[in-house]
Design a protein around this nucleic acid. Structure first.
Length: 495
DNA sequence: AATCATAGCAACCGCTGAAAC
DNA sequence: AGTTTCAGCGGTTGCTATGAT
């Protein structure tokens, strides 16, 4: 649309800030008026269109100078690119386009311009807005973003990429970059991983730091997908946010926790026959703790502005250089001082009680211990109502088998996991089907308590929640990001 | 009918890399 | 080699329309 509201009279005093020439050139052709800001009028559109049709695109500051428009070149370019270009496709995205966008986003992250290049007639701005809106919607609904076919696709590609020693950024930015050495992962993280191996089953830890990253392409996804490619200064600057992402998924720093999350979740799901849609809120007060997934693309990728519910997960600010052996240590390491949020993530599912206690006894963690204690307390308070966790003999292999069986069996027909705050772990996505598909109503509300967990299903309209019918037409299982399959959630698949 | 919340969209802003000087 | 200019990208903001209460 072309807004021609009264706000047109917003005026820039200096032209575009980052367009010195525009500013210094004195604004419009008359040199008398300051540059306008705000919505374009149809008259301005006509002038710009006429100018560009005559002189062609480019040299936008010249447009501003010679067309008589009181707009900076940058603004002209934007207007032309987003609204006046003759090849623009107007109107809502078609389902095909939407699917394509999702695919592209799964591959590229927030590379709007690149995505736009693959969607003829669509602009980066359009795609970006669409995506952000979509994220918001799904976020609100507690749904994840990516449909399963895309997750599978990403999984396949990821596996292929592991089989090929050479790779191209163009083809697969996120995971491949993580394969590269450009990314400065503190080695200590993986030293600690080794330490942790005495605490956790080897089978769960048989993942090197590198492979962990390889399997978690989304761990630093999106904003960080180009991390390795970016300017060193930017890298330095973004390292903080990167580590936010890292720590937003503490599992990357604490792989074992992720693995236990997944494993325990899987076990629970299988043993109880319902989804592992655990509720972080049992440990935290976060109203919306969805998608704190290792490598949660939804989280890191979507524009998680500070006003967004996701922002809490982004608040964890651990300066990149502050990771040290002591800080990144495993369970109970001295003063990791994670934010409460990260601890929430960390602690949602202690592997076993004994393990937890062992861990604590060997390393006094202070805050961590406190949280564990709280968790324990909560757990105990719930124990009376649900004491048993049958089928505890599940081994990782069993889990994998069952998981993969479910993968095929369910045929991806499952709706999104509306309640998994951890972002639709493998367990949740594979088993949520059980509880959902049996329901005769669209609304679910139930709460199941098991030792150490509170599996709570919040009310979600399963039909409308799927993007209010605006998204993929058919209900299907979704993930917050394909890397939920590729990540530590899924590394078992490669055992 | 009024108010509020949300969605959708357009535009702006800051930054970056490449090209030109 | 260093600086300036330009074009483009991605994140954010602000406005309007619409729906819910």
């Amino acid at each position: 649309m072309s807004i021609t509201s009264g706000s047109d009279d917003k005026i820039m005093s200096m032209g575009c800030i980052d367009s010195p020439s525009a500013a210094s050139s004195g604004g419009n052709v008359t040199g008398s008026g300051p540059l306008k800001k705000g919505p374009w009028t149809s008259a301005e559109d006509a002038i710009l269109a006429a100018y560009v049709n005559k002189h062609g695109e480019g040299n936008w500051n010249a447009v501003q100078k010679h067309s008589g428009l009181s707009r900076c070149g940058k603004s002209c370019r934007l207007r032309w690119a987003n609204h006046l270009r003759p090849d623009l496709k107007k109107g809502a995205f078609t389902p095909e386009e939407e699917h394509h966008i999702i695919e592209l986003h799964a591959k590229m992250g927030n590379k709007w311009a690149r995505m736009a290049a693959e969607l003829p007639g669509r602009t980066d701005n359009e795609i970006k807005n669409y995506w952000n809106t979509r994220i918001k919607r799904r976020q609100r609904a507690g749904l994840s973003i990516y449909p399963p076919d895309i997750c599978l696709q990403a999984l396949n590609e990821d596996q292929q990429s592991q089989n090929v020693s050479t790779f191209s950024y163009e083809d697969r930015p996120s995971p491949d970059l993580l394969l590269s050495n450009h990314f400065e992962i503190p080695s200590v993280e993986f030293k600690n991983l080794e330490l942790n191996q005495q605490l956790y089953p080897q089978s769960l830890l048989d993942v090197s730091g590198n492979s962990l990253l390889v399997h978690s392409p989304g761990s630093f996804h999106s904003n960080n997908s180009s991390f390795a490619m970016m300017h060193p200064a930017k890298r330095l600057r973004e390292s903080e946010s990167l580590h936010t992402g890292l720590s937003g998924s503490l599992g990357d720093l604490f792989p074992a926790f992720n693995q236990y999350q997944d494993d325990a979740c899987e076990k629970l799901a299988h043993s109880l026959g319902f989804s592992c849609a655990y509720d972080h809120n049992i440990h935290a007060n976060h109203p919306s703790t969805s998608c704190l997934l290792p490598g949660s693309h939804a989280l890191l990728n979507g524009n998680s502005s500070s006003s967004e519910p996701f922002s809490w997960a982004m608040k964890l600010e651990l300066p990149s250089l502050q990771y040290s052996d002591t800080q990144v240590g495993s369970c109970g390491s001295p003063s990791p001082l994670p934010s409460r949020e990260s601890v929430d993530t960390l602690i949602w599912s202690p592997p076993t009680e004994q393990m937890q206690l062992d861990c604590l006894s060997s390393r006094n963690s202070g805050l961590l211990e406190a949280v564990l204690y709280e968790s324990q307390t909560l757990k105990n308070s719930k124990n009376s109502s649900c004491q048993q966790t049958p089928n505890a003999s599940l081994t990782p292999d069993n889990v994998v088998d069952t998981l993969t069986q479910n993968l095929h069996r369910t045929g991806w027909e499952v709706y999104g996991d509306p309640i998994s705050p951890l972002g639709y772990s493998a367990a949740s996505v594979f088993s949520v089907h059980e509880s959902i598909s049996r329901s005769s109503t669209n609304e679910h509300q139930s709460a199941v308590t098991v030792p150490g967990f509170k599996i709570k299903q919040e009310p979600v309209d399963w039909v409308s929640a799927w993007d209010n019918g605006k998204d993929e037409v058919q209900p299907q299982m979704i993930f917050s990001r394909p890397d939920c399959l590729l990540g530590s959630n899924c590394y078992n698949l490669n055992l």
